[in-house]
Design a binder for these strands. Structure first.
Length: 487
RNA sequence: GGCGGGGUAGCCAAGUGGUAAGGCACGGCUCUGCAAAAGCUGUAUUCGUCGGUUCGAUUCCGACCCUCGCCUCCA
């Protein structure tokens, strides 16, 4: 097993002139490669989904949004997709969470699954074709373990079954860790299980039952127990997509051990290459740190709403950096995203006005072609967003100087098309309910203005500002806009 | 310690061997009772540091500094 060390940097292949080509970085070969479906039909894409034991945080959503973008770009390029994203609904955290909530495991995970779906929908995540749950594929997982034992890649010990890392020569290739380092890494975290392992690097495929598991267990040839974390993805991916899948993705922290272990399990069982193309999304940082509960910098969609932002603002922020690069989140960048969306909304409205009833002749990218080109080359969202704003600015200028309705119609359709691929909606003002008190203040201010009592008018505006509302006077009278950024 | 990312204006973030996209924020002007919105406009002699190659480097090479992540909980 020789891994070519010379790939110290990502290699860029030549851009194809085929208009529907989509390129993406491959984590295994560290190169930008054309994305292809092996069977020439649909792209078989397996993504590691959430563990449903609590609300997903904005970092989790970065991964899912980038996965969603990949699907959208692929499909906009004319491709078809078989997108599978699992739900991990049994593991230490879900079992503990259910016990603490005094709920059954399935009730507990169903609640968090619903929440994940609601949040995902708010963020514009398209639902994958299949969302398999680990608990629905227990027999397939048991079967996979049995095959691995038969072929000598796994062994039973003390009611659990472990993967014999030594038996798989390619182990560590994806994450570029060699066996010696793995042993050292394991040394600090001795678990009772570890005494049952032949080698510290071996990982558990099937966990023997422990009293704290309560009523969470399944019968198996090795007694009561439950599957290990890595097993579900191998079993479900191979069952639903076949033994070799085109694309497999997830957060960068899954490279080791999760994806490494998936490869070992799957390839040892099937004898075939498990994944043709790896796709890893770098982490979202908050205040330059990885998010964690202990640092108090872990945000959910609920926190975003509390500050007066919309999920779409977050989506734009999460797309503002390249997916292979760490992205630093801050509320300032959320504000920038909101303003960006307002600008897009105004540009959209302007084009719609100029276009009138005119319809575009045929589908095209118009001025947004550079943005599209950036997207299909390894999902270069920062470049694409730059191109998007540039195009919007130029079109606004052109429109003021006189643009034909037919041209506006074409550009409007193109703009909607690129926004659809990004999954980013412009910000449009909408009617919201306001309390009678607030309305009273606004009306009193208007009365003061009419009477040219500027002092009183300004005082009322300050009062409204304190309550979180911004007054904007326009030709048609006053409007109130919810202020953002308030915790 | 091993492996892998980063260091570009106040913030976010592109980019190229030939002289720094875009967004936010900020300043000026127009407009406005004042604001907001909109328009016009200004804002990095400089791309972590030090060397080297070159007519020319932020972009290539070398060394160094700082920082983040992974090394069996983790998107």
């Amino acid at each position: 097993m020789v891994f070519c060390i010379r790939f110290s940097l990502w290699q860029r292949n030549d851009l194809s002139f085929v208009s529907n080509r989509v390129d993406s970085a491959d984590g295994a070969t560290r190169s930008i490669r054309k994305l292809t479906p092996d069977d020439g039909q649909a792209l078989k894409f397996y993504a590691c989904g959430p563990t449903v034991y609590g609300p997903a945080h904005i970092g989790n959503f970065r991964s899912f949004i980038v996965q969603d973008l990949l699907v959208r770009v692929w499909e906009a390029a004319g491709g078809k997709t078989r997108h599978v994203r699992n739900l991990t609904d049994v593991d230490d955290k879900t079992i503990r969470g259910a016990r603490e909530a005094k709920q059954t495991l399935s009730d507990f995970t169903r609640g968090w699954t619903d929440r994940f779906h609601r949040d995902g929908e708010a963020l514009g995540l398209k639902r994958p074709e299949v969302e398999p749950k680990a608990t629905e594929f227990i027999p397939k997982q048991v079967e996979l373990v049995r095959r691995l034992i038969q072929s000598g890649h796994a062994y039973e010990s003390g009611g659990s079954v472990y993967y014999r890392v030594k038996s798989f020569a390619r182990y560590g290739r994806l994450s570029r860790l060699d066996e010696r380092e793995l042993k050292e890494g394991a040394s600090g975290r001795a678990d009772a299980d570890e005494y049952a392992r032949e080698q510290a690097a071996d990982f558990v495929l099937w966990k023997g039952y422990k009293p704290e598991d309560g009523d969470v267990f399944w019968e198996s040839p090795w007694g009561k127990g439950r599957p290990g974390w890595h097993l579900e993805c191998s079993a479900m991916a191979m069952e639903l997509l076949g033994e070799t899948i085109d694309l497999h993705g997830g957060g960068a922290d899954l490279i080791f051990p999760h994806h490494e272990n998936e490869i070992a399990q799957s390839e040892a069982a099937s004898g075939k290459a498990f994944v043709r193309h790896w796709f890893h999304v770098s982490h979202l940082l908050v205040e330059d740190r990885k998010m964690s509960k202990s640092l108090g910098n872990l945000y959910t969609l609920e926190d975003v709403a509390k500050r007066g932002y919309e999920p779409a603002d977050l989506r734009l922020v999460l797309l503002s950096g390249h997916y292979r690069q760490p992205l630093n989140f801050s509320w300032d960048t959320m504000q920038a995203a909101r303003h960006g969306r307002e600008k897009l909304g105004r540009a959209h409205a302007g084009l719609a006005e100029t276009a009138g009833t005119e319809k575009p002749g045929k589908e095209g990218w118009g001025s947004f072609a550079p943005a599209w080109e950036s997207l299909r080359h390894d999902l270069d969202t920062p470049k694409a967003l730059g191109a998007l704003y540039t195009a919007v600015g130029e079109l606004e200028k052109k429109r003021r100087q006189g643009m034909k309705p037919s041209e506006a119609a074409i550009e409007l359709a193109a703009m909607e098309r690129i926004l659809r691929v990004l999954g980013v909606s412009p910000y449009f003002e909408k009617e919201v309910e306001i309390s009678p008190e607030i309305r009273g203040l606004a009306e009193a201010r208007e009365a003061a203005r009419k009477a040219k009592d500027w002092k009183e008018s300004d005082r009322l505006r300050d009062e409204l500002a304190k309550a979180g509302w911004e007054v904007r006077d326009g030709a048609g009278g006053w409007r109130l806009v919810r202020k953002t950024g308030i915790a």
